[in-house]
Simulated scan of single mutants.
Amino acid sequence: MSFSVEEFEKKYVGRLSDKKMDWDVLAFQEDVDPRYRRAQMRYIGRGATANADASVIEANNFTLSTMVLPSGSIGPLHLHSDVEEVFFILKGEMTVLLQVDGEDYEIELNERDCISVPPGYYRGIRNDGQEDALMLVMLGAPKPQLPTYPEGSELEKVRLERKKEREAIISQADK
């Protein structure tokens, strides 16, 4: 079999020109609280949301996306029990939210700052700046489990309702 740079490029290169900001992928969170509005642009892997996108490079070991958080927006507290999650701030300033043993903590991040949150910690992020913020998000598995939210929260109720929908998307995409 001969190598084709064209086929390699088609399979392994993600171009901004082929992408669009997906403001709908996390709209179920925004339905719970308008401050949860944010957009994702997937490059490698479907991520925990499992939405199919033909321009996304198939993941082998991790997922990679960018996310825009408008001023005042929040990525709500959530827990990945199976993977670490990395937030790398490309533009703006954000506050990482952590909840450990019922205690809330905040860590400020600026441009080009990075945090890696191990599995098992509730984490979220908030844009306290005056402008949209942009970050890179990486999850340490090609198909991470759907995150959970704090017990009894509205988002956890929605997650349980959406669990079957996600499983159907993954099943259909894997055929």
Rank of each mutant, 00 (worst) to 15 (best):
E111I: 02
L97T: 01
G92A: 07
K163G: 03
G124N: 04
Y121M: 05
M94Y: 12
L139W: 03
I125W: 05
I107M: 06
G102P: 08
V83Y: 15
Q172V: 04
V86D: 05
S171V: 06
F28Y: 15
S17E: 15
K143A: 03
V117E: 09
G140P: 03
R37S: 11
G75R: 07
Q40A: 08
Q172T: 05
S81L: 09
E131G: 03
L16F: 10
R112V: 07
P147G: 03
E7G: 04
D53L: 09
W23Q: 04
I169P: 00
E84G: 01
Y105R: 09
E9A: 00
I115V: 14
E9N: 09
E58N: 04
N127M: 12
P119V: 08
P76Y: 07
L146I: 11
Y12C: 03
L77E: 05
N61R: 13
A168G: 02
E165P: 03
G75M: 06
R15E: 11
I74Q: 14
P142E: 14
R37F: 09
M67T: 11
T95D: 12
N51L: 11
Y43W: 13
E58F: 01
E165Y: 09
A168F: 06
R35K: 15
A52C: 02
L69R: 11
D128F: 09
G102N: 07
V158G: 03
G75W: 05
F88T: 05
E93I: 00
V86P: 00
E165T: 00
N60G: 00
R112E: 12
A59W: 08
K157R: 13
S116T: 15
I170Y: 12
M138H: 01
G124E: 10
K20L: 11
M94Q: 15
I107F: 01
A48W: 15
T66V: 00
A59E: 10
Y12A: 07
V158P: 00
T49L: 13
P70V: 13
R35D: 13
T66R: 14
V83I: 15
V32A: 12
K175D: 02
